[in-house]
Nucleic acid binder design. Structure first.
Length: 603
RNA sequence: GGGGCCGUAGCUCAAUUGGAUAGAGCAUCGGACUGUCGAUCCGAAGGUUGAGGGUUCAAGUCCCUUCGGCCUCGCCA
């Protein structure tokens, strides 16, 4: 076998005269009857091979048989291309290899799609023939960024004295949070492992174990419906540290993020980063993961709206709902755009309606015109205009609903408008830490509290007493890192006092018995000198999505799954032999039906 | 579990809105060609219109069921 001496992306004019061997895939071939050209491709680039029938008749003959995606190796001499024959589109376009020996390492069937038109090919086919898709330079680039980020992460934590420690994948199921993937135990009948949703308890126990500084680039599993930015299995940069407060954890990670952005994109990220309290974020942006690339803050105008003559608003405010909205440059939107497109848009998020009005300048004075304007007196109109700091030509869009519902509709609306109106630079990154989360959110259906993050998040020292008196207003020591409206990580200082942890379980309506059964091992660990500790988990897939500019998580995973959790390449999940089930003491519904059928037949 | 979009040749799409033998570009195969680089030119082959059922004189087109892909609501401590 010819062994390569160079890659297909590195040869330049200065290499002219060198004897080289290249290996790769035939990207394209151009047969002129006499001269034959083959563009040879490997992960580094393309280099043109030229076959001359006069000087190398046998090699030329063989070259004529080569087809796209055949794997070949070629030995030859680098020669400068003659004048006018250079290809400025290729970094190697100044030279070509005049081939003296050609070896066909492996022919290929005609590929199911052409590499050059993969962008236009259905993702379904690309996933089915992933090995073809991965040959594309763009795909390789994304894998490379992923690798480089992982390397930066490992080097960074290593230098700071962190240990990367593996935690079990065959773990204990806990009912909270997402649905677990279960793995049946062969040795323990009727028992199951769960694949970890995160190594949360293990990393905390590592802190009790004195490890002090832990990190892991680790796969996590959550059996929930996928989305464009969500897969059932995904990767986290998982971190835990002892003897720290929130600021320590935040500091370490904003430096890491800055380092990654600098090394991958050559972008300077300011550290320390901005911080927003949960309250501010919810009030101004309607979400705990605000997109700060543009302003367009949400404003509540319940106080003004309740004085209007618009029944929808007045009755809503009376019922304890609020009127909230935003103000956007409105020239681009016609009345029907608003009443059809935008109203339908917010309806998808549960909004019952979208009230609108436009801001007009007349005689140097701003007033409202159109839509709901008629329900507001000039005085109220003035107040609305002031509240939104509205300008001539703006449109004001309002939703009247319970706070939660209004926010749920307005947040995506705000993002959609900003995108449509191009209110921000696509290439900028606005990082923000969202802090001061409440510890709980009320679960109205089941009349109890739910953890906003998870039940191991510590309340602030000041609010410890409120756990007894006023749980709804207890603030937690949690923090989320958000960029461009995307949550890329979150964590908290944890509870290290078993009594506080028990109190939390009580408030979450987890009985002592249940707590002991599910978390007993953990509560016990806390009783043996658990240090104060805290940590964070950063979503690696989303990080890579941001760094590579894709909004499809499957693009940054070598072998991703579809919306229905299938791997089109391997056809997982698939049925298994009855014998395998037997060994695991499992019966599927179909299995049981078959057994019943057999019994009936015997009768 | 709900909503939306999609499925026609290996690939990307078309088919005058229910009408005749389902077309085109690329790819493939054969031929021609001395410098191309999305080579060009000539020719050929290529179809269970995702699957099943229905309406109709007639279905790629309309209806029902089903499979698959994508987006999304719910869900994702």
């Amino acid at each position: 076998m010819l062994k390569r001496t160079h890659t297909c992306g590195q040869l330049r004019l200065s290499d002219a005269g060198k004897k080289v061997i290249l290996a790769g895939w035939a990207h394209s071939y151009r047969d002129h009857g006499n001269l034959v050209f083959i563009d040879l491709r490997d992960k580094e680039g393309l280099t043109q091979l030229v076959f001359n029938p006069v000087t190398q008749p046998n090699v030329h003959k063989l070259a004529k048989t080569v087809r796209c995606e055949w794997v070949i190796a070629a030995r030859g001499m680098i020669q400068p291309r003659s004048e006018g024959m250079e290809n400025p589109k290729l970094p190697t376009g100044q030279i070509e290899v005049s081939v003296q020996q050609l070896e066909i390492l492996n022919p290929s069937k005609t590929p199911p799609f052409e590499i050059d038109s993969a962008e236009k090919t259905s993702e379904e086919l690309r996933l089915t023939a992933r090995y073809i898709d991965l040959r594309r330079p763009k795909m390789y680039q994304k894998l490379r960024v992923r690798h480089r980020v992982a390397k930066i992460v490992r080097d960074y934590f290593d230098r700071l004295g962190f240990l990367e420690i593996e935690t079990p994948f065959l773990a204990k199921s806990t009912p909270e949070g997402a649905r677990d993937f279960l793995v049946p135990s062969r040795l323990h009948e009727n028992c199951f492992y769960a694949l970890p949703q995160s190594p949360q308890l293990f990393k905390q126990i590592l802190m009790v174990g004195g490890v002090d500084k832990y990190f892991q680039i680790v796969r996590c599993f959550r059996d929930e419906d996928p989305r464009a930015d969500r897969q059932a299995e995904f990767t986290q940069v998982d971190v835990e540290m002892s003897f720290v407060d929130s600021n320590d954890v935040i500091g370490v990670h904003e430096n890491l993020i800055a380092k990654i952005w600098k090394q991958i994109l050559d972008v300077d990220v300011k550290a320390p980063m901005r911080r927003l309290s949960y309250k501010e974020a919810m009030a101004d942006y309607g979400t705990d993961r605000p997109d700060l690339r543009f302003d367009m803050k949400l404003k509540e105008i319940s106080d003004i709206a309740k004085k209007s003559s618009f029944n929808v608003f007045t009755s809503a405010v009376e019922k304890g709902a609020l009127v909230k909205g935003l103000c956007a440059p409105g020239e681009k939107y016609s009345r029907s755009d608003i009443e059809n497109t935008l109203t339908a848009f917010v309806a998808d998020y549960g909004a019952k309606g979208l009230a609108w009005t436009k801001v007009k300048k007349q005689d140097e004075k701003l007033s409202l015109a159109g839509g709901t304007a008629k329900f507001f007196s000039p005085d109220l109109q003035k107040k609305i205009i002031e509240r939104f700091e509205a300008k001539d030509g703006d449109m004001i869009l309002l939703v009247a609903d319970k706070e939660k519902n209004a926010n749920k509709a307005l947040t995506p609306l705000r993002c959609k408008l900003a995108k449509d109106l191009k209110l921000y630079d696509q290439n900028c990154f606005e990082f923000v830490w969202v802090v001061d989360f409440p510890l709980f959110e009320a679960n109205e259906d089941e009349k109890r509290y739910d953890s906003l993050h998870h039940p191991f998040t510590a309340p602030t020292q000041e609010d410890l007493d409120k756990l007894e008196t006023d749980p709804a207003n207890v603030c937690s020591q949690a923090y989320d890192i958000v960029v461009n409206g995307c949550e890329i990580g979150g964590g908290s200082i944890r509870i290290h006092d078993p009594k506080v942890q028990q109190k939390l379980f009580d408030l979450l309506n987890i009985s002592k018995k249940q707590a002991r059964r599910q978390f007993g091992f953990f509560l016990k660990a806390l009783e043996y000198g658990a240090p104060p500790h805290g940590g964070i988990a950063i979503g690696l897939d989303r990080l890579i999505m941001l760094l590579t500019g894709t909004d499809n998580i499957r693009d940054v995973i070598a072998f991703p799954k579809t919306q229905r959790g299938q791997c089109l390449l391997t056809d997982a999940p698939s049925e298994v032999d009855a014998g395998q089930l037997e060994e695991l003491n499992l019966r599927t519904q179909r299995h049981l039906h078959a057994i019943e059928q057999k019994k009936d037949d015997q009768k």
